[in-house]
Design a protein around this nucleic acid. Sequence first.
RNA 1: GCGCCUCUAGCUCAACGGCAGAGCAACGGACUCUUAAUCCGCAGGUUGGGGGUUCGAAUCCCCCGGGGCGCACCA
Length: 467
Amino acid sequence: MAEVPYRFERTDEARALADRYASLEAGAETDDEVSVAGRVMLVRPMGRLAFATLRDSSGEIQLFATQNETAGFEDFSALSLGDWVGATGRVVRTRRRELSVLVRDWVLLAKARRSFGDKWRGVSDIETRLRRREVDLWVNERTRGVLALRSRLVSLLRRRLEGLGFVEVETPMLHPIPGGALAKPFVTHHNALGTDLYLRIAPELYLKRLVVGGCEKVFEIGRVFRNEGLSPRHNPEFTMLELYQAYADYRDLAELVEDLVSELSYELRGSTRLLYQGRELELTPPWRRATMAELIAEATGTPADVHTPVEELRRRLAAAGSEPLEAWGAGKLLLELYEKTTEPGLWGPVFVMDFPAEVSPLARRHRLDPDLVERFEPVVAGRELGNAFSELVDPDEQRARFDAQAAAHAAGDEEAMAIDEDFLRALEYGLPPTAGLGIGIDRLVMLFADLANIREAIAFPTLRPER
RNA sequence: GCGCCUCUAGCUCAACGGCAGAGCAACGGACUCUUAAUCCGCAGGUUGGGGGUUCGAAUCCCCCGGGGCGCACCA
């Protein structure tokens, strides 16, 4: 095969030509010469004429070749679907109204040695689509749309937070101690240091150390890794936004969340009223705020909170088909009751407020009830979108909470946190009142792209390697 | 990890115990305004892998592998 050129001088993208020549009439020819480049989507050779549909990242335009006017016409007629081509010629509109480049010269930029699927029905096999994303992307417009939406979403989020005075930072991915969330980590090894390191399960502890250092408003958008099962809503690596704001409490962040999400909805979808998987969702602020206890009472008809006798909580859990462990206290039992009986029925948007202290080792005690913490989870479209709380700032209490976690870990809870002395020392330097928030970016993409499966929201989702 | 479903040509799908097929793509040819162009021709397979039942297996059974969904866990 002839060697392909090192570069191609493109003058215009398909979309720009479509806009510029929108009023060009059928059958009209211009003297404007342009160069376009892209991938051949369809070819229609017909003797001494040939048409090809060319697609670039902006859109599509037709190439129109004739034996008289096109150099290398025979080869042009023989183009295959999937070939990359650069073409130069005058802009015309054919009698059948198709805006075209009447090709004078053209060059093959890449030969497609593999065929990309059915030109009409595309590729629908989900495994092929995910394993060969490059094929999925060029065949399925929807896939391109999702990635474009994801890009815009992250960009909008960044711009908005910067506008609010937040500073973007990057913290380590390799952690000596996995912390900041209740999850199983991936373990890796550093040869020169001779030590195991963990892929981060959350940036939380480092971000709070930055607040200690005087970064009053910080955020990070980045990958976190959790060594857990895959599901339509869980990928082992996913992208999280975490932000921390000094002098604020969790109620301030609830307002921030409803503002951010509704603004994103307006920007990305043109409305704060959405259909998600066929079901309506009204995102206009303010969203409902309800405590976990209130929601349990509402869903089950029987009140329950952290002060409900442990025996009663156990009884109700058993009735709900759950098998609570011996070690669980009232807080963990209540959370389990909420997750079994109440959460599945929530659609939202709703802020589920005030979690048990027992299950929230990094959150600050509730100002009205020491058995609770000031924490909320926004539930949107039936799904936890994130997690936020007034941060625990007291080093002694944080140490006590870590100790309780360490005890749980020793008792077999693999997801319990380890004691992080660096973090404790940071708190001893003084963390001002601070509120922190985490939001799953992939889940936001699912919401706004109307995706049922998280893998569709990720360019290259985790799959088992083929053998 | 467990349960159910699924895997046939590059792609989309038939055949469902009796000769493995079609459309598109690819390849060869015809055609000067096409739009999934059309027409003629040609080729394309370890039916995910292995084992078993049967005169005969893509089809029924078992094991293994990939994927999907559900459960569990989380955001």
